[in-house]
């Protein structure tokens, strides 16, 4: 390469660098100006070391809860029986699907790895518009009711370890027809209740358009609904786990 070419290259590269530095400086100045103009308070960077974080403050989920498959399978085989359950009666490895669940997308049921608690057939809870979504180790069942009310039932195997006394030392209620104690809480827009059954956490939310309506002014309707949520369906994955756990 001739010295003239080398010099030309050096001039070009130098020029590019100079422009880059100039633009970068201008942009940095712009950024600085914009930052101070757009906020009333100057934001300053603060360095934090992860080493300083108290591990007790990191709330991580525990391994999925161990399910009492034996009790769940027994309940899933209780009446009423539909055609799918007739098959289950002949083949203990077949999923046990109750009437409501039989109307829901099978794919969602089959990938759910826990007992799917659902309203009992012919009970007080309307099931005609039920919709379900599965997360694998959790599911959420939405049940629109009359007068702008809706129930949402969630089952979840994934929980975080609570501090000592956070559950045991707090108020839990007895609900007629329900074996477990239940945490009942009023919401800004309704009521919620949660309880543990088969090793799984179940939550029932009641959302109300009119909080002053008879069904929402007290927890009476929610309590009756909880007592009505008693059927269990087990999809393919759940049944596989139950079988692996030795349940026949």
């Amino acid at each position: 390469m001739s010295s003239r070419v080398k010099m030309a290259s050096a001039i070009v590269i130098g020029g590019v660098l100079a422009i880059t530095v100039a633009v970068g400086f201008a942009q940095a100045q712009d950024a600085k100006n914009n930052a101070s103009a757009s906020r009333t308070t100057t934001l300053k960077p603060t360095a934090v070391s992860t080493a300083k974080i108290n591990p007790a403050l990191l709330r991580k989920p525990e391994a999925p809860a161990r399910v009492d498959w034996s009790a769940a399978v027994m309940q899933s085989r209780a009446a009423p029986i539909n055609t799918l359950n007739l098959k289950a009666a002949r083949d203990p490895k077949a999923p046990t699907i109750q009437p409501l669940a039989a109307r829901l997308p099978r794919q969602e049921l089959d990938k759910t790895r826990l007992p799917m608690l659902m309203p009992k057939t012919g009970g007080m809870i309307k099931i005609d518009k039920a919709k379900v979504v599965s997360f694998g180790d959790a599911y959420s069942l939405n049940l629109p009711q009359d007068k702008g009310m809706q129930l949402t039932l969630m089952g979840n195997r994934s929980m975080i370890k609570a501090d000592r006394g956070m559950i045991s030392a707090k108020a839990r209620a007895k609900v007629n027809g329900v074996a477990e104690t239940v945490r009942i809480t009023k919401l800004e827009d309704g009521w919620t209740a949660s309880f543990r059954r088969y090793g799984v956490l179940y939550t029932v939310d009641l959302l109300c358009e009119d909080l002053q309506s008879a069904s929402c002014a007290t927890d009476g309707y929610l309590r009756a609904a909880i007592a009505d949520i008693s059927e269990v369906s087990l999809g393919a994955e759940a049944m596989k786990e139950a079988q692996a756990a030795g349940v026949k």
Binding site: S158, K161, A162, G165, M166, T203
Partner: peptide
């Protein structure tokens, strides 16, 4: 109004 609800076990 932003809420977070988490399943807990003891």
């Amino acid at each position: 109004h932003f809420e977070i609800r988490v399943g807990q076990t003891e």
